[in-house]
Design a protein around this nucleic acid. Structure first.
Length: 521
RNA sequence: GCGGGUGUAGCUCAAUGGUAGAGCACCUGCCUUCCAAGCAGGCUACGAGGGUUCGAUUCCCUUCACCCGCUCCA
């Protein structure tokens, strides 16, 4: 599939426009047009319905408790200190002044070689490469051999995120162009977008646009618990905008600076966390398949140990094989975050975020296993920080996958037909109503049917041009059903319903149209 | 962020140092009884800013956006 053709169709049909296009656009920001907003809304509604209001049964067939929140985009900046996004947010980066390479400091390993003459070290030599010490040895084998034969000995291996003295740092070579002393010192790039709340533009008024919706959930975890009578395990969900100051937005809407997330934080007892992690991983993958993503384009990928965030016990990326990339790209990450987030917020806020399992406590008390003392209540069997499973999905990324998956061109009677094969549940327009010709009372009947249907669904009426052209127009919009009022309708009150994918028409009673659409959606 | 490329109508493309033309699409009307038919008419463009020039869409500079490669993607 050709991305350029998809982008052109999305623009032509009003799915996606570049933001601020009349001013030349702005890198990393996109607008959804009339069809795009319907598609996106359907995606978010499907997620909310299938995950929050009516989630699938849990691993043991039990009902799952899920509730939602909708938090502010701007929060107290301390939230981002606790979450680690301020300061620790971005990786340390180094730039090469000579070859302009832009590299992650922690991925560059430097091997130090020193020649010791009469108890005094000569200036050291460094060899670097992207990767671990073995990688450096492999890449620089020849040079190292040469140096060793000159009497230098291996002394140490460090990554560039370790602070270093100036005279040493000046002898580091760029792993890309191999020039010595051309690397800048490691620097942090702030990937959070900033603003100011309040009239005065100073550091005290500095606020951040949230880089993820998750922290709003953690910050409200206590509130939700106290206001709902929820018992562990349970999930809190949120759909909303998030912002990241991506250095290099690319690939259409895949990596934008403003995007929408659909996130769940599922809180459970530590001993059950692996079970829930596996549950959500499987549920989330199945959800994409159900909504029309072919499973061979969908790759769940367990992250390797070296990729994992330091607090995570396990993470699965659900990846999709986009046409613009050779490797599958992440649609959603299902992360086992342990108790990291609640622990961080407990430390930074000073508020108690532990969960007290009253049921377990009562049971233990009744059976005489414990004494009713303050100390006993502190036992981690009854009082603990819940573990968290986080399925975090990108709404825009799934929308893009949906577009890529739906796009099809095919030959119909020597003509090329372009059709968006959306899952009917996601299709922006559910049905279109046509009078076959604009006479003999057909438009009036068609209008009446149109008005009836649009009280339930997004439906279009079209009487312009030949009927074949109207069908093709709806194909590009991905409308699953087209209903045509023809001469026979005047005789027997039947209409044809045409299927987008098979092009087959079926004749049904006009009074049954709404019921038929409901059945098929 | 670096290197390369591109930027003329909604789309695909053309021409030109003297302010632009076609096909498709779109709109109006006629015609049309099932998959982009036909006829007539119509709308719409030199990405932005600056410079050179009597005059710039064309030459130069800057900038913005997009594409490809590298890098990055907490």
């Amino acid at each position: 599939m050709d991305m350029e053709k998809l982008v052109a169709l999305c623009r032509r049909r009003g799915f996606i426009f570049q933001s601020s296009e009349i001013y030349g656009g702005i890198n990393g920001f996109w607008d959804y047009g009339p069809l795009g907003v319907e598609l996106k809304k359907n995606i978010k509604d499907a997620w909310w319905n299938d995950m929050v209001r009516n989630p699938p049964p849990g691993p043991d067939g039990q009902e799952i408790s899920m509730v939602g929140v909708d938090c502010s985009i701007i929060m107290n900046p301390k939230v981002w200190e606790a979450s680690g996004h301020v300061g620790g947010f971005a990786d340390l980066m180094v730039d090469c002044r000579a070859c302009k390479a832009h590299l992650r400091a922690d991925q560059i390993t430097a091997l130090m070689y020193v020649k010791n003459v009469a108890g005094v070290d000569e200036p050291p030599a460094y060899f670097t490469a992207i990767g671990d010490a073995d990688e450096v040895r492999k890449q620089k084998a020849k040079k190292i051999k040469k140096l060793e034969s000159a009497g230098f000995l291996y002394r140490d291996a460090v990554t560039l995120q370790i602070p270093m003295e100036n005279e040493h740092y000046a002898r580091i070579e760029c792993p890309s162009c191999e020039q010595i002393g051309t690397l800048t010192r490691p620097r942090r790039f702030n990937l959070m977008l900033e603003s100011h709340a309040g009239a005065v533009l100073d550091d005290a008024s500095k606020v951040y646009l949230r880089p993820e919706t998750a922290q709003g959930i953690f910050a409200n975890y206590r509130n939700v618990l106290d206001s709902t009578r929820l018992k562990l395990p349970f999930g809190i969900a949120q759909v909303g905008k998030a912002f990241r100051n991506e250095i290099n937005p690319r690939n259409y809407i895949f990596r934008s600076r403003e995007f929408e997330q659909m996130e769940i934080e599922f809180f459970c007892h530590p001993s059950e966390s692996m079970k829930w992690y596996e549950f959500w991983r499987d549920v989330r993958k199945a959800w994409y398949t159900k909504l029309g993503i072919k499973s061979d384009n969908l790759r769940p990928r367990e992250q390797g140990k070296e990729e994992l965030a330091h607090y995570s016990i396990g993470t699965t990326d659900i990846e999709y094989m986009f046409p613009f990339a050779a490797e599958p790209q992440e649609l959603e990450g299902v992360a086992h975050r342990g108790c990291y987030d609640l622990q961080q917020h407990e430390r930074h806020s000073g508020k108690d975020l532990h969960y007290f399992d009253e049921e377990a406590w009562e049971t233990a008390l009744k059976s005489g296993q414990v004494q009713n003392t303050k100390e006993a209540k502190q036992d981690e069997r009854y009082r603990f920080l819940p573990h968290v499973i986080e399925p975090s999905a990108g709404a825009d990324r799934f929308l893009l996958a949906t577009l890529c998956e739906a796009y099809a061109e095919e030959e119909v009677k020597g003509e090329t037909r372009t059709v968006m094969r959306f899952h009917p549940r996601l299709a922006p327009i559910k049905a279109a109503v046509f009078p076959l010709v604009n006479k003999e009372g057909m438009p009036e009947i068609a209008q009446r049917l149109y008005r009836e249907l649009k009280s339930n669904w997004n439906v279009q009426y079209d009487d312009k041009g030949a009927v074949g052209r109207r069908y093709r127009r709806q194909d590009e919009a991905g409308t699953p059903y087209c209903i045509t009022i023809d001469g026979q309708t005047l005789q027997d009150q039947t209409v044809t319903i045409r299927d987008r994918d098979t092009l087959q028409q079926e004749r049904i009673a006009m009074s049954q149209v709404a019921e038929e659409i409901r059945k098929r959606l």
